[in-house]
């Protein structure tokens, strides 16, 4: 579904490349997380998968990016939008401002795609149900809370039924309840395994519990790619700035004291930690 080869990219008027040689392949229905320090290239990778790099931001790009059958470098962003959706971290700035109700906001993208009104209404209502916003259908988007606005952004993109959904730190501005609601929506979407999801996050606990596969970006390069637990355990000894959950750190401290076997793979979640410690 996604193939990236030799991707190098530099934003205009910068000297350092934001992405410095990425090779990556993602299958249909995979749930992939991307972590790394700020500035490592997570957002740039999201933009490269959705065409904003290079079309929106300009800059110099090498290599190839194929997403859902499109050659990203040769396809305008608006044409990609139907197949590859993007949700980013600021809930307020994703409200189009062109529509007065939540339902119409969700349908906005479908109107631009020329979908017939009947199908449009059905898909929009479905997206609202999937995001728990059906009670708010007649409200103005501007009266929603931050967490609700973020779910609205997800609904608006989901209604377009993209085959790939890219989310760039979608919960960074949300409170714990908002974060939980957002991940519940993603879990629902992932269940059918029809949509490929790529998600960048700092909240390692949430991410590790949700994705099958974790990528680590460091200084524009892909330095790790594998199951979340293994990758995060490896990251602990590396200068990648990925961080770790407290579960990982607690068991790491215990391991240093010899309370836990040397070869133990560090846990990421509570259940894994309890298993290791018992």
């Amino acid at each position: 579904m996604i193939t990236v080869s030799g991707l190098r990219y530099r934003y205009p008027e910068t000297d350092r490349p934001a992405l410095d040689g990425i090779d990556l392949s993602i299958e249909v229905g995979e749930l992939v997380g991307v972590v790394g320090a700020n500035g490592a290239g997570k957002s740039t990778l999201c933009y490269a998968l959705t065409g904003y790099v290079p079309h929106f931001f300009g800059g110099t790009m090498e290599g190839e990016v194929q997403v859902s059958g499109h050659d990203v470098r040769r396809t305008p962003v608006s044409d990609l939008a139907a197949d590859v959706g993007l949700v980013f971290h600021n809930p307020f700035n994703q409200i189009s401002g062109a529509r007065y109700t939540v339902l119409e906001e969700v349908a906005f993208g479908l109107e631009n795609l020329g979908v017939e009104p009947e199908a449009m209404r059905e898909r929009s209502l479905q997206a609202l149900r999937a995001t728990g916003l059906d009670d708010l259908a007649e409200r103005s988007p501007f009266t929603l809370s931050g967490g609700e606005q973020q779910r609205l952004a997800i609904a608006a993109v989901m209604a377009m039924q993209p085959r790939v959904l890219v989310l760039d730190e979608p919960t960074s501005q949300l409170d714990p309840a908002g974060t939980r609601a957002a991940f519940e929506v993603l879990r629902g979407l992932a269940r059918s395994r029809e949509t490929t999801i790529v998600l960048t996050e700092h909240k390692l606990g949430w991410l590790a519990a949700f994705v099958d596969r974790l990528l680590v970006l460091h200084a524009g390069r892909l330095v790790a790619d594998g199951p979340p637990r293994r990758v995060l355990a490896e990251a602990v000894d590396q200068p990648w700035g990925v961080g770790a959950t407290q579960f990982t750190r607690a068991v790491q401290a215990a391991r240093q004291r010899g309370l836990v076997a040397e070869g133990t793979i560090l846990p990421v979640t509570l259940d894994q930690a309890l298993e290791v410690l018992r």
Partner: peptide, 18 residues
């Protein structure tokens, strides 16, 4: 950022709108 969000809704797409 809003311009980015609009692109994500295919706002600048050429073609029929409903």
């Amino acid at each position: 950022e809003r311009a980015i969000a609009l692109e994500a809704r295919a706002f600048n797409r050429a073609g029929r709108r409903t």
